[in-house]
C-alpha cells in the first residue's frame, strides 16, 4: 500500500508525526515547569490520525478541531512558533494569548479552531460545508471529534444535516477508546462508532487509526467523494492516547486503564510502526532518520525560544477583539 504513495510524501508524513510527538512532549515538560498554564490534552499516540487525515487536504480546505488538537494543528500546517507562543500566553501567539491550548485557530491555514466544548465543533464544520456548497468551490471541511463527542446531540444533528444536504464534510472520530475516564464500551450503545453512519445513510468505516496508511487511504477516498459532491463520510479511527486525558490525569490514566492495556498500545505506537515500514521499504535509513529527528527537535526548540522571547500581552489588550 505504501508503495502507491510517493517517497517525498511518505517522508513528510513521518516527519510530521515526529514533530507532533516531540511538540507534545515538550509542551508537557513546559507545563510541568509552570511555563504553560491551564491544562493540556496531549495527543501522543494519535499522530497517525492527525497526519493521515490532513495529508490529502489542501491548504484551503477547512479543519475543525478539538481540545486534544495540537497534532491536528501541526498536520494542517500550523507554524510551531505561533502555536508555542499561544501556549505561553504571549501576544505573538495564534490568538494573541487569548485562546490557549484549547482554542488555537489558524484561519489562513484553514484551521477554524479547536474547541473546549465536547461536540461543539461538529455543527461549525457543517456550516463550513454549507459555505463551500454555496460558494461552489471544490474545497472540503474536515471535522475532528472524539468518541465521547458522538454521544452529544450535536453529533447526530450534524451528521443528519450534512447527509441531507450532501455537504462536503468528512467526519473524523479520533476514537481513543475513552472519553475522560469513561470507556467507549460503557458509553456507546452500538459496537462500532461507524455503525452510526447507517442511521444517516452515509458511508462509515472503522479502521486502525494507528496505521497511517490505512487512515490516509480512507481519507483520500472520503475526500474525493466529498469533492465530487457525493456528500459526507464518517471515519472512525481507532487509536489510543498514551499520556492520559490531560496533564491532571493521575498516572497517565492508570486509575481507569490497566497497565497491561497501556503497554499493549505502546507496542502499537503509530510512529514506531510507520518507521519500521519505511525502513523495510528502504525509504529512510537509521541515519536519515537521526538527522530528521535532530531537525525536528531543533525546530521545536526554536519555537520555544520564540515563545520565551515574545512579549506578554498588555492588560489593556483584554478589552480588544470582542467585536470587529
Amino acid at each position: 500500500m505504501t508503495s502507491r504513495i510517493d517517497n517525498k510524501r511518505c517522508i513528510k508524513m513521518y516527519e510530521q508525526m515526529l514533530t507532533i510527538r516531540h511538540f507534545e512532549e515538550k509542551a508537557i515538560e513546559l507545563f510541568e515547569h509552570n511555563l504553560i498554564r491551564g491544562n493540556i490534552h496531549p495527543c501522543i499516540g494519535q499522530e497517525a490520525v492527525s497526519v493521515g487525515v490532513c495529508t490529502p487536504l489542501r491548504r484551503d480546505d477547512y479543519m475543525v478541531n478539538t481540545h486534544r488538537g495540537h497534532g491536528n494543528c501541526i498536520a494542517k500546517g500550523a507554524d510551531l512558533k505561533l502555536m508555542m507562543a499561544e501556549l505561553f500566553g504571549k501576544s505573538t501567539g495564534y490568538c494573541k494569548g487569548k485562546g490557549g491550548s484549547m482554542h488555537i485557530a489558524d484561519f489562513q491555514g484553514g484551521n477554524l479552531g479547536a474547541n473546549g466544548i465536547v461536540g461543539g465543533g461538529l455543527p461549525i464544520a457543517v456550516g463550513a460545508g454549507i459555505s463551500i456548497q454555496n460558494r461552489e468551490t471544490d474545497q472540503v471541511a474536515v471535522c475532528f471529534f472524539g468518541d465521547g463527542a458522538t454521544n452529544q446531540g450535536t453529533f447526530h444533528e450534524s451528521l443528519n444535516l450534512a447527509a441531507l444536504w450532501k455537504l462536503p464534510v468528512i467526519f473524523v472520530c479520533e476514537n481513543n477508546l475513552y472519553g475522560l475516564s469513561t470507556p467507549v464500551r460503557e458509553s456507546i450503545s452500538v459496537v462500532k462508532i461507524s455503525d452510526r453512519a447507517m442511521a444517516y445513510g452515509i458511508p462509515g468505516v472503522s479502521l486502525d487509526g494507528n496505521d497511517i496508511i490505512a487512515v490516509y487511504t480512507a481519507m483520500k477516498e472520503a475526500g474525493e467523494r466529498a469533492r465530487a459532491g457525493e456528500g459526507p463520510t464518517l471515519l472512525d479511527c481507532i487509536t489510543y492516547r498514551f499520556y492520559g486525558h490531560f496533564t491532571g490525569d493521575p498516572g497517565k490514566g492508570i486509575t481507569y486503564r490497566s497497565k497491561e492495556e497501556m503497554n499493549q498500545w505502546l507496542e502499537r505506537c503509530p510512529i514506531k510502526r510507520f518507521r519500521e515500514r519505511l525502513i523495510k521499504e528502504k525509504r529512510i535509513t537509521e541515519k536519515t532518520e537521526k538527522t530528521m529527528e535532530a531537525d525536528v527537535k531543533a525546530s521545536i526548540e526554536a519555537a520555544v525560544k520564540f515563545a520565551k522571547e515574545s512579549p506578554l500581552p498588555l492588560p489593556e489588550e483584554a478589552l480588544q477583539d470582542l467585536f470587529h
Binding site: G38, K90, S91, G97, H103, L312, P313, E317, A318
Partner: peptide, 16 residues
C-alpha cells in the same frame, strides 16, 4: 469582571 470572555494569558485573565 470586565465585559469580555475570560482570556487564557495570565496578565489578561488578571485584568479581567
Amino acid at each position: 469582571a470586565l465585559n469580555v470572555p475570560i482570556p487564557y494569558s495570565e496578565p489578561l485573565e488578571n485584568a479581567v
